[in-house]
Nucleic acid binder design. Structure first.
Length: 577
RNA sequence: CGGGGCAUAGCGCAGCUUGGCUAGCGUGCCUGGUUUGGGACCAGGAGGCCGGGGGUUCGAAUCCCUCUGCCCCGACCA
């Protein structure tokens, strides 16, 4: 049986905030004795922290099973060959934790398991009769984050649930996707989290179809999302599709002119020097993608969205702005003077959709201290391709209904992907359909950041005193606090209530420590047990105990005979959804 | 990857500029007593390779070099 007496529990709470903890969830998890840091981005779960983690896992597991998911367990340590086969050994980049064994064979610690599971499936699935198949695991994942931070929010090791769906065709994949989408809504709703499913970019997982991220809304979130207050549209800003904003600009006053612009190096400089609005400028950026160079054009007031840019180019380029040396060699000028006119023919020019709509533009002249004015993008620029390449800004029109978008910060706790045949083709996962034809499996993959969800829950549920656990995640649902350890009646009644609640199936813990009431109250608030039952000599003399809910702080005196049923009722109500 | 900061008792910090006697404070921990409904009080006590290595010096937590770890910010918008 679990240890449910605080005197025996390894739960080192801290009065003071550890200096290293930045965000509130991290601070509280350390202070409440749930986790301790082992190294940067690596944490040890203490008993209460582990109980919470297991609660979260259980919820996820139940919802996966409800959709027909079957649990498996794949290795963390994965051979490089499979990753080379899928092409991700190179494509995944520096975030992949790479390792060599004593024979110098290459391995990685899995950040995700598409390769492993596809390898499994290609060996086992032969017939359409074996599909669809939904397999999942709850497993540690590894990412060599460039900067681990915020405790469990962005660690190098973390717990993730990942399910992979294998279907006969696209219709089947769409059904699996919808199942998981629904399951995720249930998971986060059950946890009492305020979240939003947003359209997203597929990133390194890749795939062809739709993908949604599940974002827990919190100011500390690392992701910026936009959502429409009028319709259902919501998207990560990385993904949010931008429609060209029509601006009232002026036609050129005359033919294009070269004008001196001494010491002008930035858009702001140019705005000031020429007294023109940012929207009258074209920003030209020379990018280096793998070995190729390309010139990217956006309006002066916009920012390039490198994710969109990379996708427009087919993805998986290591895109970065070209160095000043490269710019000097190719265009003969400094970064601040780059422009789209008179550039080498072999240089690809790719423009955001707004650029060709400008009637006239100011742009760099590829010559120090000069810019062109009155250039006409639509006729004078040699533009090879036009895409939506810019970053969405707050207040822009909703692409679905036109209402002004709002923005929010989100913690990404889940993502669902339609992979299509990306991995089944790369690794050869095929089956024979009803006509005896060989087909590739249509795949999907679906992740929940289990450990991160816990941190997200705290970000959304805390106050000045500590954590306020939603009932489904609470390490214990109820704590019993005998205020005095000297009063035999108080102690005896507390123990009896504790046993009674256990019999009723309540997850209950007894604070039997020989501490003053204040200490026990502070710890109970810090750890965040949803219900506290307090027993003191005075109220007990009247046959009463105190029932307090952490969330509201409301207390009520209740007859000792009735309290167990009351506690049970509160818990049952809180677990309904 | 670039920049900055920090590393002294479990936790939070001072001391370092200007080298020097036994390295301090708060909190936590142990013992005894008094207390006992929101982190009590008194008395006594334990606990430090001052992050590692090297150097300067009669003498280094303190100055110099180096390594490591941790935290924060930035990562190029022409």
């Amino acid at each position: 049986m679990d240890n449910m007496r605080v005197s025996q529990l390894f739960n080192p709470t801290l009065r003071e905030v550890p200096a290293e903890a930045e965000v509130i969830s991290h601070q509280l998890m350390v202070r409440a004795g749930l986790i301790r840091k082992t190294a940067s981005g690596l944490y040890t779960y203490l008993p209460l922290g582990l109980r919470i983690l297991k609660k979260m896992e259980a919820i996820v597991r139940a919802e996966m099973e409800a959709k027909g998911g079957q649990e498996i367990l794949m290795p963390i340590l994965q051979p490089a060959e499979l990753w080379k086969e899928s092409g991700r050994w190179e494509a995944y980049g520096a975030e992949l934790m790479r390792i060599k064994d004593r024979h110098n064979r290459e391995f990685c610690l899995g950040p995700t398991h598409e390769e492993i599971i596809t390898d499994l499936i290609r060996g086992e699935i032969r017939s359409y009769k074996q599909l669809p198949l939904l397999l999942y695991q709850i497993q540690n994942k590894y990412r060599d984050e460039r900067r681990p931070r915020f405790g469990l929010m962005r660690g190098r090791e973390f717990v993730m649930k990942d399910l992979y769906s294998f279907d006969r065709d696209e219709t089947g994949m769409d059904e699996s996707y919808q199942k998981m989408y629904d399951a995720y809504c249930r998971i986060f709703t059950r946890c009492g989290l305020v979240y939003r499913a947003v359209e997203a970019d597929a990133g390194a997982i890749g795939g062809t179809g739709a993908t949604h991220e599940f974002m827990v809304l919190a100011n500390s979130g690392e992701n910026a999302v936009v959502y429409c207050p009028e319709c259902s549209y919501a998207a990560n800003v990385e993904k949010a599709e931008c429609h060209p904003q029509i601006i009232e600009d002026v036609s050129p006053e005359g033919p294009r002119k070269l004008v001196p612009t001494p010491n002008v190096k930035t858009i702001d400089d140019l705005v000031e020097f020429l007294a023109v609005p940012k929207t009258a400028l074209v920003k030209s950026l020379l990018y280096q993608g793998d070995e190729k160079l390309l010139l990217v054009l956006v309006r002066g007031d916009r920012e390039v969205n490198e994710i969109k840019l990379n996708n427009a180019l087919g993805g998986f380029l290591s895109l970065q702005l070209a160095s000043p040396e490269v710019i000097l060699t190719l265009l003969g000028c400094q970064p601040g003077s780059v422009g789209p006119l008179e550039v080498p023919n072999e240089l690809m020019v790719i423009a955001d959709a707004e650029v060709p709509l400008m009637k006239s533009a100011v742009c760099g002249a590829n010559k120090a201290d000069y810019h062109f004015v009155d250039a006409v993008p639509s006729t004078e620029f040699r533009i090879n391709k036009v895409f939506d390449l810019r970053m969405m800004e707050t207040g822009e029109a909703c692409p679905k209904c036109g209402a002004p978008l709002k923005d929010a910060r989100g913690i990404e706790v889940g993502q669902v992907f339609k992979l299509g045949t990306k991995y089944s083709k790369a690794l050869g996962a095929t089956y024979l359909d009803i006509n005896g034809e060989e087909k590739f499996c249509e795949m999907g993959c679906y992740g929940v950041g289990v450990s991160r969800s816990i941190a997200a829950a705290i970000e959304q549920n805390h106050d000045d005193y500590g954590i306020i656990w939603p009932m489904p995640l609470a390490p214990y649902q109820c704590i019993i606090v005998p205020v005095s350890t000297k009063d035999a009646l108080v102690v005896e009644t507390a123990v009896n209530l504790y046993l009674e609640l256990q019999r009723l199936g309540v997850e209950v813990i007894l604070d039997d420590r020989d501490e003053r009431g204040g200490v026990k109250f502070k710890d109970a608030d810090l750890v965040g047990y949803p219900i506290r039952v307090t027993l003191g000599s005075k109220t007990l003399a009247n046959g009463q105990v105190e029932l307090r809910e952490r969330k509201t702080g409301e207390t009520q005196l209740i007859l000792i005979k009735e309290v167990a049923q009351q506690v049970k009722a509160i818990i049952e109500k809180a677990l309904l959804f």
